[in-house]
Structures are given as structure tokens and as C-alpha cells.
Design a protein around this nucleic acid. Structure first.
Length: 510
RNA sequence: GGCGCGGUACCCAAGUGGUAAGGGAGAGGUCUGCAAAACCUUUAUGCGUGAGUUCGAUUCUCACCCGCGCCUCCA
């Protein structure tokens, strides 16, 4: 079955085929680096990551560009108030973005590019538009003449002919001939960063960077362009206009737009102030892998309502998958194999692949993998699972995780690596379930009223944990269950969960 | 007003013209020193409302209600 995607341009699900050979040329709009990105932003970036991973999974070569907007009103304003040069200011948030990407297992694109490194390309593009009569200068700025481009509005299917000057169309104080026109190049203002150009000193308008950079790395016509749904208008509409006007060729074949993350029924956004950054959630004790899972679990075209309950559910779901993988790799099974079970694993694989082929239906892909998990567990419990069956199940699980990328429990290591969690200190907040704490005897009934008790607890190194587990095993052998339970409770307080299995005690970090 | 997205059990959520995947949570049970994990059973005669098409609709058509987004910076 072929890959199919919903194309915003045609408002239809279409079969996907690269324009040239086996290589997919793709551009995805990245963040404006004036602050930490919030998880609403990351919902879109996770969607784009699932997209690129699935394209690779299906054997395509990728040529993927992600942009960083490092010059705009916000970056200029914030760098000035911080008293830091623009580049130095944005560097900080570029770095933060890179760390967040690694925490969320976002694959590196082939090109991660910054707007201010491509001023020359933008100037050339604007010059071409002026030469072709699609742009004009006014008061030191350059505008795109929307009226000269008859196809304007193809993406939005919006009729702007009624929009007139004087309406609440543009808050900028630049002079435009027509209210629909948008700025390609902004004349320099007092005290703001600027670049010298043939049309005078200034800085780029919002949309031009994406046209200039995408065409530089991907050519004048390429396969996929994606971003959040709020970018459809005016950003992507304007990109199409300025790109196609300059080249006379179709700009992009397939436009993909992710729906928003909402919180309490409203879009999560900086202007509303109802946002969480990745760091906010980590500080509350949530794992990046759980955040990735939550963001990926709802198909990208559906609004995702963010709740802490949802995050908790995501964490539980991941644990179920990890527990299954643990059994697959660590438990002992009788020799031989069972064709029916292996076929079951194969079937699950085909189902999750087909689900992703169908416009990235991640929810259905999850359903397929959990079906397999249950059947595998059942077979193990009934002693029907054979040693030779491991491979088929592990293969499906591993393939599934090439897309979802949540099975490896390396959150702790990454947080330590990036200094977001310090090994062996007591300044770390860790989320633990109140019920779990109560059952372990380390919390009173009635403590807290939500899922998550945020405790100030220390983290133990792997070695310390292993040592305590060995001590507990010795106590258990002697029948000293009081001591055994004491160790288990103290480990739980440090965020370590123990499970006694036939193959010995396993542990994992909460 | 224009253009979109959505309304499925306590929560998240898939899906189909033929009678509701999956995950979480809850309840009971099995296993276990106790837990945890895992398994079994269980939780929507109904898929926003009304009407229509049909042998049959949650799925198609129409109308309506509700939530949200974009139309201005925004993933």
C-alpha cells in the first residue's frame, strides 16, 4: 500500500510520490529563537519527526531543511532588552532548541539553517521579484504586490479582494500601496540590526527567509512543506506567492499542517501565557519520552488537548511497552518456536506500517502494537511462548520504535548529560504517584490531591541502586522481609521501582 | 461574516454502510512472602441533536447545536 497524505493545497488525501527519484525534498518551519519553545511548538516538531522517520522507514532518502528564525520583532525586542547583540541572544535559544530536540529524540534534519546566514539569498530573491514587477519599494521597504499575482489565495482559499487599506490588516507602520501587500524587506529602524542592500539598509520580512532557504537547498520546486496550521495564512500563502512569482514554477507539491496543542480548550501560545516549556514539565518530574509519546499519540490533524492526566497516561503506556520488551529479552522460554505467534508479530508489523502509511495514523499504529503486546504477554503467561519467537516480536517492536522512539529508557542519562538533573544531589524534583508512595508506606493517606506528588528527593547512581538491590536479595533469602521492604521503600523514595521476577529483581527509574 | 478542525465510554483515542480497535483509570480474580509486573473477567444496544437515503448508519445527505483555530505576531 502506498503512502497517503492530506494535502492542504488540494484539501484531499493524495498518494505520495517524490518528484524526482527516491529522494524526498522537505522543508519544515522551525521555531523563532527568542525564547524557549513550548510543547505546543514541539507537537508540530514531533509530528514532523514522525513524518521524516516514516519516510525513511519506507525507504526514501531525505533532504530535509529546518529553519531557525533568528531575526524578527521578537528576537530584536528581547535581545535589546537583554542588552545582548542579536546573534549572541539567539545563539542561546538555538542551543536550547538543540538540547530539547535531543531530549525528545527529534532526528537531525539534513540542514538546520538560520535566517541571518542567508541574507544574500533573500536579497537576490527580492531583487528578482522587483525585476519581474512583483515587488516595489516604498519608504525604504520593499513590498510584494499581491495584485500582480493572480493565483494568490490558492492555499487558504480565501478571497482578499474585499480587504482594504485602513482595516485592521497590518500593525506595521510601513506604507503599502494595497492592504493585501506584504513586506519583503523592512527599512532599518533606529537602533535595530540591519543589513546593507541595493534597496537600502534593513532586515528581512517574515516570509522571505523560508522561500530563499528552501529553494537554495531544495530547488525551485520540491516535495513537502509543513508547519503548524496557524502558518497556513499568511505565512505559507505568502511563501507560495513570492516563490512562484519569482520562478514561474510551482513551489511545493504537498503541504502538511499540524493541528494545535490546546490547553483548557484554548490554543497553547505565548501570547496567551498558557504554555509549558519542555523544561517546565521536566521540572515537574515528567520524562521527555512520555512527552514525546503524548505528542505523537494523537494523529497530527486532530487538536490535542494537553493535560497532566494525559501525560501520566502516556508514561503508563510506555511502561507497558518497556515491560514487554524486558520480558522478551530477559525471560527464559522453552526451546523451539511457534509459527502462529511469529505470524502474529508479523501481522502487527504490517498493521502499524499500514496505519502510518495512511496519513500518519499514529493512534492506529499504537493500537496495532498494543494488540501484539497483549498477545505476546498472554502466550508467555500460558507458557506457549518459545525461545525462537523472541526475534519476530523484537523485530516488530524495534521497527515500531524507529518511528515512535520512546522505548529506550535513557531519559535519566540525557537529563544528567544536559545538566537538567544532577546525579547524586537532592535538588531534583521527581514526580511520583501518591498512591504508589502510600502503598510503599512513605506517604500518609490524603497527602496531595492529584496524581503527582512532587518530592524533593535525591537521585542514586546505578551502582548504589544495584548495591541496595543485592542487599535486599540477601535479606529476602534470610526471610528478613522487614529489611527487604525497607530497602524497597527507600528506593521508591529515590524514584526507583523494583520488580521481582523469576529472572531476578529488575529496577527502573520512575 | 469567510475558510478550516473537531464533538465516540470516567479520561485519551481508532474506525467502518452490516452492527463499536487500542491505551489509561476503576472493580473482581490468578500469580506473588508482600508488592510490582503480567494475564483473565468486567465498564458505550450506542458513537453531539433532529430529519432523510437505505434491508440496515456511528459511518452517506441535509439542517441545527456545541468547542476550537486561522483571517493580526504565532508550531
Amino acid at each position: 500500500m502506498s503512502l497517503r497524505f492530506y494535502n492542504t493545497l488540494t484539501r484531499q488525501v493524495e498518494e505520495f510520490k517524490p518528484l524526482e527519484g527516491n529522494t524526498v525534498r522537505m522543508y519544515t518551519c522551525g521555531p523563532t529563537v527568542y525564547d524557549y519553545a513550548h510543547i505546543g511548538n514541539y507537537r508540530t516538531f514531533v509530528f514532523q519527526d514522525v513524518l521524516r522517520r516514516h519516510l525513511k522507514y519506507r525507504g526514501f532518502q531525505l533532504r530535509h531543511v529546518v529553519n531557525l528564525t533568528d531575526v524578527d520583532d521578537n528576537t530584536i525586542r528581547n535581545s535589546r532588552s537583554a542588552g545582548v547583540p542579536l546573534r549572541a541572544y539567539t545563539d542561546k535559544y538555538v542551543e536550547a532548541f538543540q538540547i530539547d530536540r535531543q531530549l525528545l529524540n527529534l532526528e537531525d534534519p539534513e540542514f538546520l539553517v538560520r535566517a541571518t546566514d542567508h541574507i544574500e539569498e533573500m536579497v537576490k530573491l527580492i531583487q528578482a521579484l522587483m525585476d519581474r514587477g512583483y515587488a516595489y519599494a516604498s519608504e525604504g521597504s520593499v513590498y510584494f504586490k499581491v495584485g500582480a499575482f493572480p493565483h494568490y489565495g490558492q492555499l487558504t482559499q480565501i478571497d482578499l479582494t474585499g480587504v482594504r487599506a485602513g482595516a485592521r490588516v497590518d500593525t506595521d507602520k510601513y506604507d503599502k500601496a494595497d492592504a493585501r501587500d506584504f513586506v519583503l524587506w523592512k527599512a532599518a529602524k533606529e537602533g535595530e540590526p540591519f543589513w546593507e542592500t541595493p534597496f537600502g539598509p534593513g532586515r528581512p520580512g517574515w516570509h522571505i527567509e523560508c522561500s530563499a532557504m528552501s529553494m537554495k537547498y531544495l530547488g525551485e520546486t520540491f516535495d513537502i512543506h509543513s508547519g503548524g496550521s496557524d502558518l497556513i495564512f499568511p505565512h505559507h500563502e505568502n511563501e507560495i506567492a513570492q516563490s512562484e512569482a519569482a520562478t514561474g514554477k510551482p513551489f511545493v507539491k504537498l503541504w502538511l499542517h499540524g493541528e494545535h496543542l490546546i490547553v483548557n480548550g484554548e490554543k497553547m501560545s505565548k501570547s496567551l501565557g498558557n504554555f509549558y516549556t519542555l523544561r517546565d514539565l521536566i521540572a515537574k518530574g515528567y520524562k521527555p519520552s512520555a512527552i514525546r509519546y503524548l505528542l505523537a499519540s494523537v494523529p497530527y490533524r486532530k487538536p490535542l488537548n494537553f493535560t497532566f492526566d494525559g501525560l501520566h497516561q502516556a508514561q503508563q503506556s510506555i511502561d507497558r511497552l518497556r515491560n514487554f520488551r524486558f520480558r522478551l529479552t530477559k525471560e527464559n522460554f522453552p526451546p523451539g518456536d511457534s509459527p502462529a505467534l511469529k505470524a502474529r508479530a508479523q501481522e502487527a508489523r504490517e498493521k502499524f506500517e499500514a496505519a502510518l502509511d495512511d496519513n500518519l495514523n499514529t493512534a492506529e499504529a499504537l493500537g496495532a502494537i498494543f494488540d501484539m503486546v497483549r498477545d505476546g504477554n498472554t502466550a508467555m503467561d500460558r507458557r506457549e511462548f518459545r525461545d525462537g519467537d523472541r526475534g519476530a516480536f523484537l523485530d516488530t517492536l524495534e521497527r515500531w520504535d524507529r518511528i515512535f522512539a520512546v522505548l529506550d529508557d535513557n531519559d535519566h542519562a540525557k537529563l544528567v548529560k544536559f545538566g537538567l538533573l544532577k546525579e547524586g544531589t537532592s535538588s531534583v524534583k521527581l514526580g511520583l504517584d501518591a498512591r504508589e508512595l502510600k502503598s510503599a508506606g512513605v506517604a500518609e493517606e490524603g497527602i496531595g490531591n492529584g496524581y503527582t506528588q512532587v518530592l524533593q528527593v535525591g537521585t542514586l547512581s546505578d551502582e548504589e541502586i544495584e548495591k541496595l538491590i543485592a542487599e535486599r536479595a540477601a535479606a529476602r533469602r534470610k526471610g528478613d522481609y522487614a529489611r527487604s521492604d525497607e530497602i524497597r521503600a527507600s528506593l521508591l523514595q529515590a524514584g526507583v521501582i523494583l520488580e521481582d521476577t523469576k529472572a531476578g529483581t529488575r529496577w527502573k527509574r520512575k
